[in-house]
Every structure is written in C-alpha cells, then in structure tokens.
Amino acid sequence: MTGQDPGPLIRLYGLTGGRARPQGDSFDLVAIVTTVGGPHTLADLIPEYRAVLSVCRRPTPVADVAAHLRLPLNVTRVILGDLRREGFVTIERPRPVAQTIDEHIYREVLDGLRSL
C-alpha cells in the first residue's frame, strides 16, 4: 500500500492539524469510549467531533467510532484524544486480557459464536 498517492489521507489529517498520534495516555483500538454527560458548548466543535459525541452516548469501541465516522483509526484516535482532554469523553484504560476476559465471558463468546 505504499507508494500510492496519499492525497485523501493528507486532506484527512487536516482535521487533526497534521497530528498522527493522540494526546495523553495511549488507548487501545477497542477501548470503550463514552460521552460524558452534562451540557457541552458544542458550537465550536467541527462536525466530526460532534459526531463522535453523538455515537459515544452509548459506550462504543474506538474501532467502531472510526467505522461510524468512516475515518482512519489514527485520525479517529487524535479526535478522541482531543475530546478526552476537553473532558467530553472518557476512554477506558488498557487492561491485561486476564483482567477483562473471565470464564463467564469466554462462555458467552463461545455460545454467541456457535449460534452464528
């Protein structure tokens, strides 16, 4: 995928002021993002940022936010980092797999897969 014209991507990165990495602590591609309640001053936010806040009223993984916005993951993560810094969203901290996936979850996943 290298060597191709990166024109559209370069334009996308205009959204983030050219930044390819989010501010603050790192977060995973599937970290859960949740819009923080309360009245926000949204007037200054550009549409992509407002769209994130709308999607994440339901806790939503980072990758899904990118899917909703049809934006690359990197760009999405920069936007999310900005929103977190401004206190508009919370993003769960990365946790080791052993702490997140217990036997009950495994069972649910297995049952879910088998019923596909």
Binding site: M1, T2, Q4, P6, L9, L29, V30, P59, P61, A63, D64, A67, L73, I105, E108, V109, G112, L113, L116
Partner: peptide, 19 residues
C-alpha cells in the same frame, strides 16, 4: 507511509463485541 488495516465485528450481545 500508509498501512492497510481491515477489521470486522461480531456482536455477541449488547455491550460485548468481538473484533
């Protein structure tokens, strides 16, 4: 440089997804 990344999703239930 660019790198291609594909992902898909399976919803197990509300609030539990496989990516």
């Amino acid at each position: 440089t660019t790198v291609a990344l594909d992902f898909g999703r399976i919803t197990i239930r509300e609030g539990l997804w496989l990516y």
